[in-house]
Write a protein that binds this DNA or RNA. Sequence first.
DNA 1: AAAGACACCTGTCCGC
DNA 2: TGCGGACAGGTGTCTT
Length: 270
Amino acid sequence: MPELPEVETTRRGIQPFVEGKRIEALEVREPRLRWPVEERCRDVIDHSIEAVKRRGKYIIMHTAGGNLIWHLGMSGSMRILPTVHASADHEHVCLQLDDGNSLRFRDPRRFGALLYCEHDPLQHPLLARLGPEPLSPGFNPDYLQAALATRSGPIKNQIMNSQLVVGVGNIYACESLYRSRINPRTRANRISLERLQRLTQAIKQTLQQAIEQGGTTLRDFTSADGKPGYFRHALQVYAREGLPCPGCGRPVKRLVLGQRSTFYCSQCQR
DNA sequence: AAAGACACCTGTCCGC
DNA sequence: TGCGGACAGGTGTCTT
């Protein structure tokens, strides 16, 4: 489920409820996430959450007792509920706050993660080698051209590679390539600077618009208040195999790249 | 160094 | 109604 817009929506949703609050308890009902939840996560107990940040698809909570790094994986979501509220199925972690509310982490598939990092979380091995934020000025045509110089694989695989740029998952890769009229199979290092200009712009616009819509809900994504995202209605090719392309009316095609479904228009995207 | 396959999980949907 | 198989928003790890 969660690509950058969904993670950012989640971050914005929880931030006002957790920032400045003290962590009274950390209840791990199911430690078997992507990696086992470590015992030292408990070092944050009795400390206040000073800030809630995002890097790529990671959500980072800063406290004087160390930092919590969250990843939503494929099926993760967060909600704020009264602590007395019973926990739901697949709600693996509960962070109890000092105002009677708690943050619940639910993740049926358990591809998500809760990590602890005592010092600078950006230096954590999983975060240290991440590429630039797609909405930052550092992600631009010149950067992308240099980054792709040695990459001959399909462009779609490249923009989904978090070492080149973070936050772009399967939905937004498909949508951004459609918007920039680039065929997802195009070999990355053969794309002109002009077309990379279109691509970087399309990625920025698509992600920005999706954030403004609260992300995309395909099946079960909800933000911290339990509401779905509305960008689903703006999807032009993703999960629309056989339906007419909004540009030319021909049926949207599907192929598999990097073992992921890829949706595109063979007429509009060259 | 880059690319591709595989792994990790549960839930849902579709065809028979 | 039940069952098997395909598929799902991610990404680290291993092998070529």
